[in-house]
């Protein structure tokens, strides 16, 4: 039972409690850049989750072979491989999304979440729990992106998943889908998260 419990917490930690973007403050660049619409955010979240899970699995599997001094280059090679796979597959089967995410797909290579989890978790833990950690963190990243992009798309474009929500008389707050809106939204989301955490701590 206790084993199942830790497996669950390995998985669940990343989703909210240790949310990569809202608590660990990792992966800010794609978070800011691709959250202007919910569609882009979900695409980015799924791409990053795939890379995270696969690289966690492989790095964990290879952890006894990869020498300590050479671990970072090895991690990067593994991560870059999966990122390139995502890049190619997306270009082939989802050209619209590929076009709007653009440079941010290749940039998953330098996303600190992926390298951070490889270093902090997968290199030290077994394959199964590394995979769970990858899934949890990936979902956490996607949740963060989803929250942020929902807020930004509704306010900044008056739509959700490209479906218009308000009548034509609604004038969207354009700044929200521009970079300044991204920074403001992220700031308020982080504040909200730490406010909720604090309240929870007080209650417990």
């Amino acid at each position: 039972m206790s084993n199942g419990n830790t497996a669950w917490s390995t998985f669940a930690d990343g989703i909210w409690k240790n949310s990569p973007t809202l608590t660990l403050l990792l992966g800010m660049c794609p978070m800011l850049a691709t959250s202007s619409s919910v569609m882009n955010a979900l695409g980015m979240g799924m791409a990053a989750t795939f890379v995270l899970v696969m690289s966690n699995i492989f790095i964990s599997a290879l952890r006894n072979i990869i020498p300590k001094q050479m671990r970072i280059p090895c991690f990067i090679v593994v991560i870059a491989t999966f990122v390139t796979i995502v890049d190619l597959v997306m270009a082939a089967y989802s050209p619209g999304l590929y076009k709007s995410l653009g440079i941010f797909i290749p940039l998953i290579v330098v996303n600190c979440i992926v390298l951070g989890r490889a270093e902090a978790f997968a290199y030290k833990n077994g394959i199964a729990s590394s995979m769970l950690d990858g899934v949890g963190m990936g979902i956490g990243f996607t949740v963060g992106l989803f929250l942020m992009s929902t807020f930004r798309e509704i306010l900044g474009n008056g739509s959700f998943l490209n479906l218009p929500l308000f009548g034509p008389s609604f004038s969207p707050v354009l700044i929200m889908i521009m970079p300044p809106g991204a920074f403001m939204t992220l700031g308020f989301l982080i504040a909200l998260k730490s406010y909720l955490d604090k309240r929870q701590k007080k209650g417990a």
């Binding site: 004038s171 969207p172 707050v173 354009l174 700044i175 929200m176 521009m178 300044p180």
Partner: peptide
């Protein structure tokens, strides 16, 4: 500036 960028028409 916030309003100018957000609501250039108004």
């Amino acid at each position: 500036v916030f309003l100018l960028i957000s609501f250039p028409v108004q």
